[in-house]
Design a protein around this nucleic acid. Structure first.
Lengths: 275, 275
DNA sequence: TAAATAGTGTCTCTAAGACAATATCTC
DNA sequence: GAGATATTGTCTTAGAGACACTATTTA
């Protein structure tokens, strides 16, 4: 750096310009087992998303994604990982940047630019984590998530946890510049524009698992083809033919030589992610 | 909004938290014709990117993407469109969000979070635009862009405009959380981390044109299949077999019934983008 | 042996890559 | 007619979807 640059920097006053607040919000997904399994019947799985009940205004008592303000000492990605850890006790193994949400009125407190991230937790991590309550978080919970398309083409997002049901109806639009966005038509219980963020996140997640990315992060080191397929089915919301899915999946897998056992049906081979 | 929320908002002080500066940077691509055409020989095309020579520190005399600070009254996307217009006189027809760049030291002045966008200008728009100089922009120019992979797997970015040549060597890495990023190994003339942003932008552009998105924005309303194919070739950096490309492309095209004429070779059908 | 899940094989259809061959314009 | 580009057709291969069938465990 030469003298001119040095001098410039010393005289530079960053406070002269307006600045927005910047946050990271994280959509954390995990697969959980449903009850009702027997020695013979395997447990069904469900796709879940972590939400936090807001204990303070704005949107008090609404449900929000974990997240918080960017600090001076961290990148956006580090911020996402830190906030996730602080609010849930879970250390993120994977993160993906989903998009930026910068609507003028999305937070009534002040102008907030939110960088949305996506993360996936394995069942193993799920069991070890404590769901911690942050300073303005009253309660956190895992909600079974459903994201489907209605008859008129609208998108329906439904999150359910025991008797708590949160929903939103959205449409997919292209904005003035051809960018695809979800727009909320009805909002039942989500804080801020988080329904839109969640819709973007699951769309992104579906794309990745379809291409055998992120899907292994739901699973332990060793797993069966049925495990893998059921996750793909829960994420995509579609049922698949086992023989065809097997054929595709095997390109991404290595056999361990081990088998499952102890169930009231044929044992299955255990696989690992290839290389 | 109830009384509790109302009261909360009145007491809320946004100034108590640290905030970063937020900018939009835009990678604008266009196709330009090369000289050397005759009645018989059609002009070759080249893919170009708009860069601005910085007239003030930091990175004085280096080349940067057009961009600037987010204002209170606009979204990130609106900011990108405005900055593009102010610095080039071009009204964006399309924009795509590429990613967020939030490294701690990416701007020596102060902490700056940059939201990167991608845009495409048609040859028509290109001819009508004046390249305007902004307050800290000394000069702007269209650079022929090349982005290739070297023998050791490294990525080479070369931008050329007359006798000005800017380059960077990068590697593609997965960060701690599995996110794909470009990391600069050598930097010859780019300001900030803009080489990384450009690498991300062209990677994104290649993905889109391959799927017949954004590619039509390079072209006028009516165009030939050869026009379309040559753009795909310049963007992707690969040559394609005309018969095969035609087969794929026709799914996205409508015939106009019109033909080109006046060239020293067989006339071609003019197509439009389907619906 | 019934219930439940695991795994194999095969037929069809579509899409993509390679490439040969033909068509049509201007000078 | 030569040069240049446009257009059509065909052969082959890879992959996906549908579906029939076989295998292996436990109470």
């Amino acid at each position: 750096m030469n003298q001119e640059e040095q001098q410039f920097l010393e005289n530079y006053n960053a406070e002269q310009y307006w600045k927005p607040s910047v946050t990271a919000d994280i959509a954390v997904f995990a697969i959980q087992r449903e009850a009702g399994a027997t020695y013979r019947l395997d447990p069904k799985k469900k796709l879940c998303l972590l939400l936090i009940k807001r204990g303070a205004p704005p949107f008090k008592d609404c449900w929000a994604l974990p997240g918080g303000f960017l600090r001076e000492t961290e990148t956006m990605t580090e911020c996402a990982a830190r906030e996730l850890y602080e609010e849930t006790g879970a250390e993120a193994t994977v993160l993906r940047h989903i998009g930026v949400f910068s609507g003028l009125k999305r937070d009534p407190r002040t102008r907030v630019i939110s960088n949305a991230f996506l993360s996936v937790l394995s069942e193993e991590k799920l069991e070890n984590m404590k769901i911690a309550a942050g300073d303005d978080a009253a309660y956190a919970g895992w909600f079974e998530i459903q994201f489907t398309q209605g008859k008129k083409g609208e998108y329906l997002l439904t999150l359910q946890h025991d008797d708590i049901k949160i929903y939103s109806s959205m449409k997919k639009i292209k904005n003035k510049y051809g960018m695809t966005e979800f727009k909320i038509l009805k909002n039942g219980g989500f804080a801020f524009d988080h329904a839109e963020i969640i819709a973007s996140a699951i769309t992104h997640l579906r794309y990745e698992t379809k291409h055998f990315e992120l899907i292994f992060d739901f699973l332990p080191e060793k797993f069966t083809l049925s495990d893998l397929q059921e996750i793909e089915e829960r994420v995509s919301g579609k049922t698949l033919l086992a023989s065809n899915y097997r054929r595709k999946a095997e390109n991404f897998l290595t056999q361990t030589g081990e088998m499952t056992n102890g169930f009231g049906h044929r044992p299955a081979r255990l696989f690992t992610r290839k290389k």
